[in-house]
């Protein structure tokens, strides 16, 4: 019924002699929440970078949202990133000299034009209406991650990528962030691909795949 948003065929990524991702075949239908698990160095971040258009595959085909990533130029990749994906990082990566709302506006700036009212609304939506004018250093880890989420979804991406988004958070904040993601997904209907090594976090997804040493070793569907 639903269309496929991510489709890989024999996707490979080598860094010199090291093979970070062995030929991988993966299909993600639109709207799915996919968790990717594995040890560090298992190639899950590499996969995420490839999906987000931050990196290019060494071999194999990769289609995201109908776009052939191999065929895109450097500027085409940048356009793809701003129009199609939102990325949440483990280390938040907020710009230190901008306030929360300005950090969100930065994403608007690269996408089209900055719009402060809309950025404010987005922050209110993630429950940060009271901390609009605070710098990242004045925010807690959970709050910073919520700014990141607001920034990732501000341009209405089709695909939300999470690179261990809860890796630096305590249990309570993790729960809050996951809850928030679930709510937002229900409203915006984006696809989520989330890398994690926390089985509890992975369990929020519809499906979990396990990578080991660059190979897809197991795949399981979450009940419910």
């Amino acid at each position: 019924m639903s269309t496929t948003i991510i489709e890989t065929g024999g996707l490979t990524r080598n860094y010199g002699d090291i093979c970070a991702l062995k030929p991988l075949d993966l299909k993600v239908p639109e709207g799915e929440w996919l968790s990717v698990m594995g040890h560090s160095g298992s190639g899950k971040s590499t996969l995420l970078n490839l999906l987000g258009g931050l990196d290019r595959p060494s071999n194999g085909s990769l289609r995201v949202g109908g776009e052939d990533m191999q065929g895109l130029t450097e500027d085409g990749l940048a356009r793809f990133r701003r129009e199609f994906v939102g990325i949440i990082f483990q280390q938040h990566h907020l710009i230190p000299y901008l306030t929360a709302v300005e950090n969100v506006m930065m994403a608007q700036y690269f996408h089209s034009v900055p719009d402060e009212a809309e950025a404010r609304l987005a922050l209110e939506r993630v429950g940060l209406g009271h901390r609009l004018k605070n710098r990242p250093s004045e925010l807690s880890g959970g709050e910073q991650q919520r700014v990141c989420i607001a920034r990732a979804i501000i341009n209405s991406p089709k695909l939300l990528l999470g690179d261990e988004p809860t890796g630096n958070l305590d249990h309570k904040s993790t729960l809050m962030v996951m809850e928030l993601l679930k709510e937002l997904r229900a409203e915006e209907r984006f696809t989520i691909v989330m890398v994690t090594h926390n089985p509890e976090v992975a369990a929020w997804g519809d499906r979990t795949i396990y990578l080991d040493d660059g190979i897809l070793v197991r795949e399981e569907r979450t009940r419910s």
Partner: peptide
């Protein structure tokens, strides 16, 4: 460096 990488990851083109 991180800030620049972030800008690019957010979708900023090289020229921008």
């Amino acid at each position: 460096g991180k800030e620049i990488g972030l800008m690019k990851a957010m979708g900023g083109g090289r020229w921008e």
